[in-house]
């Protein structure tokens, strides 16, 4: 399943569709646009309007509609300090809520996946991976990626300390200048809140070298 905010980078959607074709898999697309049409959520207003928060409702509706037991995600504990205590099996109650005080302890490799009807789990198999582990794995397993993970030239604006890609979903504000820079993305989500980093790395080896050096330069800025 893909929770589609409708604010995408073209490359992501092209890659997604090609990947689904190659796998011969069935893709369920849960659309935030549809949730807006149905009146489940209301579009945010203003220059920083984003559908990042709205997608939770779309996700929960889709989990309920399809009766999914688990939604598997790629979140890692090293992404930010607040995630250091996240579980592999994160239990959500009937209302899709997460109670940080009532998380199940995880010992050895014994995961407690028991739940009542209506509840579900978010499962994060990569919890213990670091950003470096991900890149090393991509290199070792020769995993194909959308090109925007590598250095490319793009029109960006600087907003709240981030380099934001200029797309149809972003309105340039007064005082903001559009620049053409060589950038890459470290993570890709909703186009309105996915930050790019300036980078010349256009091979895997170069990205890995940047990640190794970046551990000390404070550029980590998780987007969507």
């Amino acid at each position: 399943m893909h929770v589609d905010t409708g604010h995408n980078f073209e490359e992501t959607i092209e890659f997604r569709d090609r990947y689904v074709r190659d796998l011969d898999a069935r893709l369920v697309v849960a659309s935030v646009q549809e949730s807006i049409h149905k009146g489940r959520v209301v579009e945010e207003k203003g220059p920083n309007a984003s559908r990042n928060a709205l997608q939770t409702v779309t996700l929960l509706d889709a989990i309920e509609e399809h009766g999914f037991d688990a939604a598997i995600g790629g979140a890692r504990r090293d992404e930010e300090k607040a995630r250091a205590k996240e579980r592999f099996f994160s239990h959500r109650d009937d209302f899709g809520q997460w109670d940080p005080k009532n998380q199940r302890p995880e010992l050895w490799n014994l995961f407690n996946g028991r739940m009542n009807p209506g509840e579900h789990f978010r499962v994060f198999p990569l919890s213990n991976w670091t950003e470096m582990d991900v890149w090393m794995y991509i290199q070792r397993e020769k995993i194909v990626l959308p090109e925007i993970y590598f250095s490319h030239e793009r029109e960006v604006i600087r907003r709240a300390g981030t380099l934001l890609a200029l797309t149809d979903f972003i309105t340039v504000q007064e005082g903001e200048a559009v620049e053409r820079l060589r950038v890459r993305f470290r993570t890709i989500g909703d186009a309105t809140c996915t930050g790019a980093v300036e980078s010349e790395a256009w091979t895997l080896e170069e990205v890995i070298a940047e990640v190794a050096a970046g551990a000390a330069d404070g550029t980590w800025n998780p987007g969507g």
Partner: peptide, 25 residues
Amino acid sequence: GLRAEREQGITIDVAYRYFATPKRK
């Protein structure tokens, strides 16, 4: 970790942290 814990001045639960040297992770 979380702000509430910082305010209390103690860490609760298990927090996992990651670092690497050229020899090991």
